[in-house]
């Protein structure tokens, strides 16, 4: 018996050691490539070409960043990204909350029909081309509002909020009604403040999606002044990769002057907001993931 326990202890020690070692390796696999991009963005193009700056820069320079910040179109794209993220996330969460509030009331006439109407949108859609034709006929092509309006409602988020609103004690609403409060007042003064955690989670997820979204711009925007950062990066990277740096036919100033270092500096500038926000709000992201999973 004693011997067996000793063997177990030894085996468990070995297990813990291996587990720890493998997780360290895994963490390095995630973090080293990202670190490499950060290092490269601070390295001169000549040093990048001979490729010895893996963990530490061989020729430290701020030039790449100076070039990025000197480009007014990048600043402009930054502004568009911030505007679409802030306006998009807030209109989305408020619209979803408003619809969810109405739908959470059992006495709502037509509630059964409305919810079935909504659930269908979770499983069916027209696909890419009919959607494009709709956006075109709505006159949203090459308009800033294409980032905002089509994304204002997701029935998935409506379901999450509806479940949240149902948990608000009915007595709160009843006493407010006795005091003569209207549905709208009850919604804005009682339900919204009580649902802050759910609203925050949905706002965050939608905000990250807005910040990271590039398909909307790729499909619906041709006016470069309306490009968000992600689209700008796509343009810089893909065009410089396919056409080569020397191609004089390229008209865009960034594309022409972009070396690998400048591309990577743009990538870092675009990622920093996420890198700053994510660790601070990690808790909300994970709880949001769980809320979604429970629904599934």
């Amino acid at each position: 018996m004693k011997q067996k326990t000793g063997k177990t202890v030894r085996e468990n020690r070995l297990f813990n050691f291996l587990n720890l070692a493998l997780l360290v390796v895994f963490t390095l696999i995630v973090i080293v490539p990202i670190w490499n991009v950060v290092v490269s963005s601070f390295t001169s193009s000549t040093a990048l070409a001979d490729g010895h700056s893996i963990f530490w820069s061989q020729d430290f320079t701020l030039q790449n960043y100076q070039k990025v910040f000197a480009d007014t179109s990048i600043w402009r794209a930054f502004g568009i990204s911030i505007a679409k993220t802030v306006v998009g996330a807030f209109t989305h969460v408020l619209f979803c909350a408003m619809v969810a509030y109405g739908l959470s009331k059992k006495h709502l006439v037509g509630r059964g029909f409305y919810t079935r109407f909504g659930v269908i949108t979770l499983y069916f859609g027209g696909g890419m081309i009919p959607y494009y034709l709709l956006i075109r006929s709505l006159g949203l092509l090459d308009s800033f509002w294409v980032y905002i309006i089509p994304g204002m409602l997701s029935y998935y988020d409506v379901i999450i909020l509806m479940n949240f609103f149902r948990d608000v004690p009915a007595s709160l609403e009843e006493s407010a009604k006795i005091d003569g409060a209207s549905d709208w007042t009850i919604f804005t003064k009682i339900f919204l403040p009580l649902s802050k955690p759910a609203l925050a989670t949905i706002t965050l997820f939608n905000g990250v999606a807005q910040w990271n979204d590039f398909m909307t711009a790729k499909m619906f925007i041709t006016n470069q002044n309306l490009y968000p950062l992600q689209m700008k990066i796509y343009e810089i990277i893909v065009q410089s990769q396919t056409k080569g740096f020397d191609n004089a036919a390229l008209t865009n100033s960034v594309v022409q002057s972009s070396s690998k270092g400048v591309q990577l500096a743009t990538i870092i500038v675009t990622t920093v907001p996420i890198l700053v926000i994510y660790p601070l709000l990690q808790r909300y992201f994970i709880s949001g993931m769980m809320v979604g999973a429970v629904k599934e």
């Binding site: 739908l103 409305y114 109407f117 909504g118 034709l133 709709l134 709505l138």
Partner: peptide, 23 residues
Amino acid sequence: RLQGMVLPGIAFMFIFTYIPIYG
């Protein structure tokens, strides 16, 4: 008032999901 909160959502889904399905 309550219907006025829900119906814009229904109209939204009609436009952005059901019209493309017809398309």
